[in-house]
Design a binder for these strands. Structure first.
Lengths: 338, 338
DNA sequence: CTGTTAGCGCCTTCAT
DNA sequence: ATGAAGGCGCTAACAG
């Protein structure tokens, strides 16, 4: 593996000059530069990343903290964030929390303090993990939060408008003629879930739609809890005519429960999801759902983080709330001709 | 950020001693070691990764080349590989090829040559990319292949028995009484797809099941091609009574097409998938499918790679073919009482 | 058992 | 416009 010294020797210049042309810094004679480049090419030279990181105090890597990278929930978010990191040549390392933030804290701190990454993106986190996030923030490392807000703290965060999303859902369903609407919430330890549920309650009240307690099931975001929620609704008399599942995973569970019980969606009961995961349109019936702009969120957060890294630690403060939209597909139907 | 020098000063020892206790190398007086550890803790010291990598010529990072990390196809594979890397404290960086291996080659080479990773795991790759893989291999970097075999080349590779999988599928369907079985193949530029298709043909012939050309649709692994394939089968007279989709994604597409055309699965037509993706049981109907041992494959490949890294470049040669199994769920039914 | 010394490969003033 | 020299933080002989 050739190093910068070899290149210099082959090009007949000093290492400093090689470094200059490689990094486009300082004035270098065009002829010399060319000689250097040909040497670089012929030696198939690539600067050693560790050496460079050591002297620059910068690794061109960012870390991403998330629950589990294999969760479909993160698909578009990752695509969005990589869409900005790739062209900038910054690498990304994913750290799976597996919903065990507290126990993984030391590992994360080690990563941060060992200088493996220049900044950290934290996607989601439970409400009770506030202090952990604050500790991370304390390290002086640039940080960007996604789907999580830290009231009173100066930190970049990008969110989507969950309250709006739930309102759109309710209004869409109401527009279709539904009045008995059930809701399966997410895990209420999460900011996102709380906001969606609040938005739902709010919209139901505003539109004077009845909301008996039996029409609310506290889920946890998992497929099974959607399944169970739907079973409960199906046992009611009268049944809700529509179910708002606070994420797509639960919506799938709900659809499965309905099917198994001999009901079909949307003929017998409508199901509305939230997130618009990649597979939402691949399902039968294709899921009508509230689309969260994951791709943008990932991209914006990455941009904010990289900007902080470039300009100095935790300099740029931004709170960005993105709008959401309802994507109409096939899992809800208009009432009226029942 | 404290460095090794600070620790030494606080503990009243030289940096070498600190290094020794940190790395458990050489004999160190227990008392001294303790003083060092307390200094380490009180300073919240973590060795700088870049400096360490520079002198050790080892980053404790491995790279993973795959199509797109957000593809559900990789879920369990990643879980498996991380299950071995995490306890060993080796980091992993994912490089998405996005089916554009050739154009990303230079980027990959840069990563390799800049010493960002100690080894490379390559998951899949098209047949015509053989030379690219060979080039990568030429870099002298430890490499492990997954779902790809390089005939005549010394390289670790872990595969699953695709031929067996297809045979199991055919035999299962035959056991259920099906004789008219359609097949939607994957993209035949991929080793995996070729093997599955070969296995299917083979098993059909061995069991003397009729296989008119119309019962074979060349797909590409995507949802839509499963959809299209099913539409073609549905247009046939007589229709196949069962469809073997060579991956779950296409199986979903096939189910959707059937549903849309007013047929239901498995009552009117059976659908059998391949892969057993995480969402296979979350679907309605729950997908009967051939399970590939992704988790194990990822783990074994990671182990092989790490072993190569530890013992020396490209030392261990291994070719491991893992068995597959058929997971019976709800998308196929027995014929007979039609 | 512990300290001294010499780099790992690169970037960056400071001279020239 | 270019070279010389020092140092980023750490590990690994080599002395003692």
């Amino acid at each position: 593996m050739a190093n910068i010294y070899d290149v210099g020797r082959l090009a007949g210049v000093s290492r400093s000059t090689v470094s200059r042309v490689l990094n486009n810094k300082g004035e270098v004679d065009a002829k010399t530069a060319e000689r250097v480049w040909t040497a670089v090419k012929s030696l198939n030279y690539h600067p050693n990343a560790s050496a460079r990181a050591l002297v620059r105090h910068k690794t061109d890597m960012i870390g991403v903290l998330l629950g589990d990278i294999t969760d479909p929930y993160y698909q578009k978010l990752i695509q969005g964030l990589e869409s900005v990191t790739r062209p900038l040549n910054v690498g990304v390392v994913y750290y799976n929390i597996y919903q065990d933030f507290a126990n993984r804290k030391t590992g994360i701190l080690a990563v941060i303090n060992s200088g493996k990454v220049d900044g950290l993106m934290i996607v989601g986190s439970r409400l009770d993990e506030r202090t952990i996030v604050l500790e991370l923030l304390d390290c002086g490392m640039p940080i960007a939060l996604v789907e999580r807000d830290l009231s009173g703290i100066k930190v970049s965060s990008v969110l989507s408008d969950n309250q709006l999303g739930s309102r759109l859902a309710v209004e869409y369903l109401k527009g279709l003629g539904h009045t008995r609407i059930g809701c399966i919430t997410g895990d209420l330890h999460w900011q996102t879930a709380i906001e969606r549920f609040a938005g739902f309650n709010d919209a139901m009240a505003r539109h004077r739609l009845p909301l008996p307690e039996s029409h609310i099931v506290t889920g946890n975001g998992a497929h099974e809890s959607g399944y169970l929620g739907m079973k409960r609704f199906l046992a009611l008399t009268p049944q809700p005519t529509a179910v708002f599942a606070c994420n797509d995973m639960m919506a799938l569970g709900a659809v499965q429960a309905a099917n198994e019980s001999g009901y079909s969606v949307p003929e017998d009961i409508s199901v509305l999801g939230y997130d618009d995961l990649v597979f939402a349109p691949l399902f039968y019936p294709q899921l009508t759902t509230v689309r969260q702009p994951f791709f943008q969120m990932g991209a914006i957060a990455a941009l904010a983080l990289i900007d902080q890294i470039a300009t100095g630690k935790q300099a740029a403060i931004l709170k960005k709330v993105l709008p959401v939209e309802l994507v109409e597909r096939k899992s809800c139907r208009a009432l009226g001709n029942v």
